[in-house]
Design a protein around this nucleic acid. Structure first.
Lengths: 219, 219
DNA sequence: TAGATTGTTAATCGATTAACAATC
DNA sequence: TAGATTGTTAATCGATTAACAATC
């Protein structure tokens, strides 16, 4: 009996690294480099080669000793593995400055998602298009989400409005929320939340920087 | 002899969580809640109470058994610990849509940084102001960075321009780069790079979503 | 062939979680 | 007082790194 490789068993750090491999492989493809080794990938991305090998293994790809992995095939395999071959339609809620920036991000369809509509509570922003994507009033969301079979919502509203907007998404049957607001969201257990908390990164960066500057000063 | 608590010894996951505590504590302060326990924080942020306690311990704060931590003091201590009490001046390179969004983000000064100038290679964007912040040509950066004692640069240029722009920052004596371009940057060892790779989050989210949808379909 | 590289198993490392005495 | 909570030490868990045989 086959043991299906459930996605649950794949370490999150591995998933987090896969897109970097994609980015690098895309470049190598452009340079027409036919094969690539874990050593080379590791050097470029500052990772242990063994780790790279283990990461790649989760996609099921098989390499050739002494040769490495076929660049093109490796790229395709990772893309396929992440479900990024055909982009799914998603909604964006909150057409402020950050939302607008994401609406203008044309590369998203290379990463598995296509923003097909935006929503905002402010009537002044509705009825227009931003970067070619229509903006509707938030009250239109539930109906459209069902009709368009939307599973994923991107949340770029101000922090005070986040929970309420999230509730609308959940009420509309959405299954996953990519949350850019710096707050914890309450959702039922069947809804997945991925927080994009810029300030977490900033905390790491400022800590390291402070330490580094202090060291320099002491020398 | 004292053992100075170097920042190096603090786990990165802890640093990553501290800002969430800040956000929640800010809210509790508004509600005039005087004390807070690790249990309460853990419930709100979906974390183990013991983990919260250990995280808070790195800041040096001391709680009171049965009572918890004084909310206001805890908030101040974390902010102080992260060096977020007085914001430092930083530059932003790349005044495109994402850069513009970040320039409009007024809350940054609560998180330790203040963007004082933006730079762009496109002459059409220079000489203007965006959200009240002046935009200069990239060639002006080195001189201004030295004069204004800038240590941190935010990189929001397109991926093709990232390495070159990064080199300009490094050449200008910058010590840390917050990189929003989906590529690995080559920098000398004394420069800190913090990557903000949105697609890493997206990989995790789409994997989980795909798994969840597959499960639903099978039931 | 020799040597670089893969695939895999074992060892290490560090973060999370559990256990528990001390405290107000 | 009783019980919730802190602070700390020990156990567990999982990811990273090291070791090594197999391979082209």
């Amino acid at each position: 009996m086959e043991t299906p490789v459930t996605l649950k068993s794949i370490p999150e750090p591995t998933l987090r690294r896969l897109p970097s491999y994609c980015n690098y492989l895309r470049r190598l493809n452009h340079l027409n480099q036919e094969f690539v080794s874990c050593t080379q990938i590791g050097q470029e991305l500052d990772l242990d080669p063994t780790q790279v090998r283990k990461d790649l293994a989760v996609t099921g790809i098989v390499g050739r000793p002494k040769v490495g992995y076929p660049t093109r095939e490796l790229f395709d395999t990772i893309e396929e593995f992440l479900g990024w071959r055909d982009a799914q339609n998603v909604f964006l809620v909150g057409a402020g400055s950050l939302g607008t920036a994401l609406l203008g991000y044309t590369a998203f369809d290379q990463y598995g998602i296509r923003i097909v509509a935006a929503f905002d509570a402010d009537p002044g922003k509705c009825g227009r298009e931003i970067h070619g994507i229509p903006v509707f009033g938030l009250e239109k969301l539930p109906d459209l989400a069902v009709r368009m079979r939307i599973h994923l919502g991107i949340l770029t509203v101000p922090v005070e409005a986040a929970q309420e907007a999230c509730d609308v998404l959940v009420g509309a049957g959405i299954r996953a929320v990519w949350n850019f607001a710096p707050t914890a969201l309450r959702v039922p257990s069947h809804v997945i939340v991925q927080n994009e908390h810029l300030f977490s990164s900033l905390a790491i960066l400022s800590s390291k920087l402070t330490a580094a500057l202090r060291e320099t000063a002491h020398v």
